[in-house]
């Protein structure tokens, strides 16, 4: 376990820990853009550079493993100056449209520009212009906002095992695209959207549905398969406008296409809104009391006529534990039959 001194504070860390992670343990902030805790380090944005005694040039803390006795300084006038240059360079090739950007308020780049107080840009110059070309219904790509941090490329490969996208071209023309710019072969898990630090990748579903203001975030569990991924519902005016997952959940923030994009059924206009009773083959809206009374009457009737075992109940693998518990209790204790099952087998 090597010991490292960062900004005068010493800590012992497991072998292989990066300088950035060691600094995090000490709660020393280092700005980053391309770094993501669940992905292999990239070292592209250069913001996390630090000075290490004995190494002549600044090094990226996200890629440098700690070694015994290492002495690190995370902030010097020269380092901060370099960071500012790097940020200005990124911003010199970035649209200045935070006002209408989906990620405003939740954008790492915007936040860093704020902290470094970047208003004027010494390096203003040509900006990459792309025509949008998106056939897919899930993910909005705005390549002009892409800072080529590589997170989407890495998550697609390392986490999702798909490799739908990679870096293409060279120099200033570099961009993230499909191999040979062919059709996108994608699972639409939206992991790339989740890790994008800017507004380059966003969900089409939540475009202009609300950003930070008046949004309530509620943590719950995904309604689909049995994996039970933890999700966060973003609520605005009693409507789920977006689904995300936090990095500190057991599923590490990863979701699939259903979990991330499959929430629109909640506010579907097809939802049943009133109890219905069928009369002469037609459903009629009735009050709850009427429906419930009718059910009780019919069930009592059948029970007394044929016995409790003439009634069966099917419960749901999509209802809660509590509902399922009460359902079987209803069947067993209130009706008096063990005819209760659910769809585990289907």
């Amino acid at each position: 376990m090597p010991k490292v001194t960062i900004d005068g504070r010493t800590i012992e860390v497991p072998t292989g820990t990066t300088v950035l992670d060691a600094a995090k343990m000490l709660d020393i902030p280092i700005p980053t853009l391309c770094y993501h805790p669940k992905l292999t380090p990239f070292g592209g944005c250069r913001l996390c550079i630090v000075e290490i005694k004995g190494i002549p040039r600044p090094v990226t803390s996200c890629t440098t493993p700690v070694s015994e006795g290492m002495e690190v300084t995370t902030s010097t006038p020269q380092i901060e100056d370099l960071r500012k240059t790097v940020l200005e360079l990124i911003l010199s090739d970035h649209p200045n449209d935070c006002m209408v950007c989906e990620r405003a308020g939740d954008c790492t780049l915007q936040e860093l520009a704020y902290f470094y107080g970047i208003r004027e840009n010494r390096f203003a110059g040509e900006r990459r212009i792309y025509t949008k070309r998106d056939g897919n219904p899930f993910i909005e790509r705005d390549l002009e906002k892409c800072i080529l941090c590589g997170r989407c490329v890495k998550v697609c490969d390392e986490v999702q095992g798909v490799g739908a996208i990679d870096f293409g071209y060279r120099g200033f023309k570099s961009k993230i695209c499909t191999p040979y710019e062919k059709d996108l072969d994608c699972e639409f898990c939206g992991q790339c959207v989740a890790v994008c630090p800017t507004g380059a990748l966003t969900g089409k579903l939540w475009a202009f549905k609300g950003r930070q203001k008046d949004i309530k975030e509620i943590d719950t569990v995904c309604p689909y398969c049995g994996t039970g991924c933890n999700i966060t519902l973003h609520i605005r005016r009693n409507e789920v406008v977006r689904v995300t997952s936090r990095e500190d959940t057991w599923n590490e923030g990863w979701l699939c296409v259903k979990g991330r994009f499959g929430y629109k059924f909640i506010s579907s206009s097809d939802r049943l809104k009133k109890p219905l009773i069928k009369r002469n083959g037609q459903f009629e809206e009735v009050s709850w009391d009427k429906a419930l009374d009718y059910i009780a009457e019919k069930l009592n009737d059948i029970k007394s006529k044929y016995g409790a075992d003439a009634i069966g109940g099917l419960s749901s693998a999509r209802c809660t534990n509590e509902e399922n518990y009460l359902f079987q209790k209803l069947m067993r204790a209130a009706i008096g039959t063990n005819n209760v099952d659910h769809c585990a087998r289907l």
Binding site: R46, V86, G171, F172
Partner: peptide, 21 residues
């Protein structure tokens, strides 16, 4: 050199472009 930058890091990708400009 600007055109040959691999595109990974900001100073090289954008910085050399700005120098060239």
């Amino acid at each position: 050199t600007q055109a040959e930058s691999c595109g990974k890091c900001v100073p090289c990708r954008i910085g050399t472009k700005r120098l060239l400009e």
